[in-house]
Design a protein around this nucleic acid. Sequence first.
DNA 1: TCTTGATCGTCAATGATCATGACTAGATGG
DNA 2: CCATCTAGTCATGATCATTGACGATCAAGA
Lengths: 174, 174
Amino acid sequence: MRRSERKTTDPDLGVLTSTTLFALQKELFRTLAEQGHPELRPRHGAVLDYLDEDGTRATELAALSGRHKQVIGTLVDELVDLGYVERRPDPTDRRAKLVVPTARGRDQMARSDAIVAAIERRCADRVGEDDYAVFRRVFRAVAATLAATTSEPVASSPARRSASPTRMPSGPRT
Amino acid sequence: MRRSERKTTDPDLGVLTSTTLFALQKELFRTLAEQGHPELRPRHGAVLDYLDEDGTRATELAALSGRHKQVIGTLVDELVDLGYVERRPDPTDRRAKLVVPTARGRDQMARSDAIVAAIERRCADRVGEDDYAVFRRVFRAVAATLAATTSEPVASSPARRSASPTRMPSGPRT
DNA sequence: TCTTGATCGTCAATGATCATGACTAGATGG
DNA sequence: CCATCTAGTCATGATCATTGACGATCAAGA
């Protein structure tokens, strides 16, 4: 059997995570566009995916999303123009600014969470509630296992380096 | 509970796939670098991940990896310079060229597959063989479910739009 | 055979995204 | 008061993706 066939009939963990993340992101943004948020692109997830209702600092968003402060800055600029967030001075630190979602931003956050939840529900219905529960539990363990081995040898970097489902590029038309 | 905490304690499918893919890719390339392939970057996976031992067309690599033909072309250029692949005329079609792995390329392909397999084995040992089997089976079903819904409405695009584990950017130093 | 349309790989130009170092203002601890 | 650290921004270069076009070739039908 050829290698390319093997990768499609019995895909390894890399292919599985990649295809799933890719498809999930595509459906998420397509649905968001239908629900009134067509200007959002995957990169904006670095901010919106980790934003709290009462505001989050840009530096913390950088750490959570694994992006540079610089990138977060330009993303927040765009999201301010689009009306999703606004910058407020942090009362506890005059250097910092809190990135706070507007009503439109909170709407996107709620819809985004709901869309992903609906996708998961669809999968659970298809494979069965019990099996899907096992899937999710093992997945958390797998993610924890991998995160441990990749971040252990690093001591100087305090970045948590998580990732968000809205950060991969979408597919071309080949 | 704040949204950002919820995303870390009970992550949704998007966060799980994203963190796992991210960590998997990081470990894969770190190990590959240790085993004699330090020049490879994630983007090269669009070619090497889907390459067959007897050669594959650039257009097919584009379809399999979800990249543009243009991107595949420049990637193949780089991989030729690095000694991983070479271009040969396709005997059955004088327009096409087969991208064929060299000995060095085949070494990378074998090591890459082995590294991912070892990571999966480590996870299976931790969570138990049975649960991991369920995890993998459900994962294939989830990937198939999502792939179906995202590609169904499209009729004009023959691209298969798969994805590879070596395509995400690595994390910055914040 | 000749024509029409499609495909293969490539070139060129542009846009989008990321990485890096330096800088100002403010905080923190002695 | 002073040295040091942190938060956010600016500026710049590098990397990467997208798009349209092109010559060469193939495939199907008149």
